[in-house]
Each structure stands twice: as structure tokens, then as C-alpha cells.
Design a protein around this nucleic acid. Structure first.
Lengths: 129, 129
DNA sequence: CCTGCTATTGATAATCATTCTCAGCACGTG
DNA sequence: CACGTGCTGAGAATGATTATCAATAGCAGG
């Protein structure tokens, strides 16, 4: 029942943390394969899922696929994402947290959680545009 | 090139507006079929997509599928959604709009857009829990 | 260091939502 | 009422994700 340490899990963790922004499971698999790793697709999905559950990665859904990104564990934060190159900045949003909680309470909702992501064009991509 | 009015499109629009919260294309198709309509699945997808583009419906992605809901046209707003029964409340959030815009600007991002949704358990579902 | 138990892996099949294809049909104008 | 063109729908195609299951490899105990 205990978790075992395998090079596959480490490979996925490393690949994630060296990525600039959010990455899809498919492209992460492709990158690992290109770098010579014989890892399997199913294993990449499992590892990413474990990381997300364990709080070591954030995920979001875009255009029907799940994107993942390594994140600072244990802290609640949101993201500012370049819609062109995927560059991601972690942002704090205490005001939004409070707002979400109070809106939920006002309408009789409990156990509030929220999805807050901001998209835009980063400085670099503006110059290219 | 002009849009034509068909009973299929009206059926989808009606089914959407009589739904309590967000509904998936699949379940909307199922509901229409059960109510005796011989509408096709592809048509439901097309109609929902058109409604979303035209601003007559909002959409969000959850667990790998797209959910749709009729909404007040022309106004920008967000949603408070019961994660159990799907009941949805439209909420205004001028403060959040402003916050999102300033956060983007602070990091050199332009053309900001954002995704803001709050999930919780509605009063009715709490009593059932 | 060797052994056994069992979690993990990975090739592939299966699933599921969504989109595409294309021939036949129906809306709306003249 | 006739015609042109957009619309429809059954089923195939696509693409991401998950399940299957036999073979493999951590890790603890001897």
C-alpha cells in the first residue's frame, strides 16, 4: 500500500519543473520520449495525476485537454498565463479568496472552492505580434 | 450565409433555458431524445456552440466535458455553482474584473481575460448531505 | 546478498466526448 | 410553387484519457 520510488516518477517530476508554463500530458510524454526516456504514456498520466493530488502540481483544463505545471507545494495561489507561449506567473489573491468566500456565504453555499485564472499576452509575445 | 431558423435550434434553446444549472451536451441530447424529439447529436453540439458564440449561453469545462447554460445576453458575469446538483447563480464581480486587469498590467500582460467560477454546496444539498 | 510480496510499469485495447463527412432535406426568397 | 443553399443527422473519425493485465522491479526481512 506504500508508495514506491521509481525513476519514472522522478523523470516526470523533473520534466514538469523544467517546463516554462503549463504543459499537456501528451506533450510532456513526447518531450520525455525525445530525450531518450522509454517511459510509457500511461505512466506519465498516472504520475501527473499523483502530483496533482499530492499538491506538487497545478492543473487546468483548456480546449478539452488537461494542462499541468509544477507549483510551490502547500500554497494556495492562482495563475497569470500567456495565451500565446504559455508563460505562467503565480499570483496571490487574498482579496479574491475573501470575495469568493463571502459570495458563496451570501447565497447559502458552503464548502466554497474556486477557479480563478487570468489569461493575457505577455510582454515578449506582444513584441512578436 | 444567413442563419436559418429551425425547430432544432429552438428545441436546444428551450431545453437549455429550462435547465436548472449547467448541462453537458450529452445530457441535453439525452433529455431531448427522451422527450420525443428526433434531434441528432451533432446538431445539439452545433446549436450549443452557436449559442455560446452568440453570447446567449455560457460554457465551462469540468472533468473533461463542456457544460452549457443559458445566460442573460450581453452582460459579463460569473457563476456560483453547486457541485452536487448543478444549481447555478449568476454573480457580478466588478472588484474581480478590476483586480484581474491590474494584475495583468502589473506583469506586462495585455489583452487580459479571465476565468472565475465559484463552486460550493447549495443550501438544499447541505440538508441532503 | 537472496527471496518473496506486491506496487508499478507499459503496450494495447477500450472509452468517451467531440468533430467531421456527405448525401438528402427544408427554410425562405422570388 | 420552385430553387439555391444552409442545415441536419447517422455513422465514421479523431484525440485525449483510462482500463487491462502480464511482466517487472522496489523494498523489507532473513
Amino acid at each position: 500500500m506504500t508508495k514506491r520510488a521509481t525513476w519514472q516518477r522522478e523523470a516526470v517530476r523533473d520534466a514538469l519543473s523544467t517546463s516554462e508554463g503549463f504543459v499537456s500530458a501528451q506533450s510532456l510524454y513526447g518531450a520525455l520520449r525525445e530525450s531518450g526516456s522509454p517511459i510509457g504514456l500511461a505512466t506519465v498520466y498516472r504520475a501527473l495525476s499523483d502530483l496533482a493530488v499530492g499538491g506538487d502540481a497545478d492543473s487546468l483544463q483548456q480546449e478539452g485537454e488537461s494542462l499541468y505545471r509544477a507549483c510551490t507545494p502547500g500554497s494556495h495561489h492562482h495563475h497569470l498565463i500567456c495565451r500565446n507561449c504559455g508563460l505562467t506567473v503565480e499570483i496571490e489573491a487574498d482579496a479574491v479568496e475573501a470575495w469568493a468566500a463571502s459570495v458563496a456565504a451570501d447565497h447559502g453555499f458552503t464548502q466554497p472552492s474556486h477557479v480563478v485564472d487570468v489569461f493575457g499576452l505577455c510582454a515578449a509575445c506582444q513584441r512578436l505580434g
